[in-house]
Structure formats: C-alpha cells, structure tokens
Amino acid sequence: MNPLVEAISEMREDDAVRIANEMLDQGTSALDILDHCREAMAMVGKRYEAGQYFVPELILAGEMLRRISDIVKPRLAEGVAVKKLGKIVIGTVQGDIHDIGKNIVTFMLDVNGFDVKDLGVDVPVQKFVEAVKEFRPQVVGLSGFLTLAYDPMKNTIQALKDAGLREGVKVMIGGGQVDEQIREYANADAFGKDAMAAVALARSWTT
C-alpha cells in the first residue's frame, strides 16, 4: 500500500504530513497526493461503516486532509477541474444552530466527489429555496438536532414544493432524533443515521 494512504488510514497524523511533504519534494504532483488522500478516505469510510472507526477517526482524517490540502493546494495547476458526481445543498434548519454532524456529512460528501454548497446553520426556509433555484442541486440535505427542527424540515420541503422545485431534487434529512417517523412527517425522501449513510444516499440518487 502507498505509505501516505497507509499513514492516513491508520490515523498516523505526523507520519501522514511528513510523507506528504516528502512526496511533494520528490516531485509527486499535488493532484496525485490528493488522489491518495481520497483513497485513504474511502478506506476510513469503509472502516467507519464496519464499526472499526468512529466519529473521532473521521474528525482526525478531516484534519489530516485539511493540513495536507493546505500544503499541496498552492502547487495545484490552474484550471484543473476535479470531476464532480453531483451537486448537493445542505444546511441546518431554521432555529437550530447544531452543526457538528452536518459538517462531517459535508466533509464526507465533498471528499467522495460531490459539489457541496453548505448554507450553515439556522437557515431560513426561503434561503434553502433560493439556493436550490440558483445552485440546481440533485440532492438537498436538511440537518436538525432539536425536536423543534421537525417542523422547519417539513416547512422547507413544503416550500420547495410550492416553488415547483420538489420534483427536481431528492431530499435527505438527518440528526439525533430523526427517524422514519419524521421522514414521513416531513415528506423527505430518506433519512440517514450518519455521514456514510448520507454518502450512500447521495450516490444512489446521482448515478
């Protein structure tokens, strides 16, 4: 296995950063290094799904990717477009400012090849509608932690319908107290328990 892929997937942060620097010095392209990072992230994602890795490992992986990206991005050739699998708008619904789970989802979707527009937290219903109109995503993700997030989720999906946008997107919802009952209540297409579920759903809806 490539040493950078191994270091990242084994959670060895200092080794990973050192190896990335060495590879860069030895002439490896920035793109290739980022490809290794993506390969490592796929392994991390699989281990998370298998119950070997947990949220802290996803967070550390994200940190390693951020540090390595900061090092290599200045060396990326201009105009290099990385092919994207699809577009996603995501945000935490109105009145709710929780975002840790959402941020992990955004990160995993991005690393898995999606073009993600993250609207942040406490996102008013209309802001979701405008973002869908302008960005034209295939998928919309709604995050909420509080029981008071249920109605804003429902209202956001209704607003998409009222604006004639509902048919063109798939909507996934997630959060600590979100389940099938709330999926039905809010008229979402699916709910996910974690970031890997979000990736699986996004893939199934865009391929």
Binding site: Q94, G95, D96, I97, D99, I100, D122, L146, L148
Partner: peptide, 11 residues
C-alpha cells in the same frame, strides 16, 4: 436564535 427556539450551545 429566533424567539421560538430554545437556548443552544455555541461549540
């Protein structure tokens, strides 16, 4: 946060 939302921690 809106008047209808509960208090929430800023991480």
């Amino acid at each position: 946060v809106p008047p209808t939302a509960p208090y929430q921690c800023v991480e």
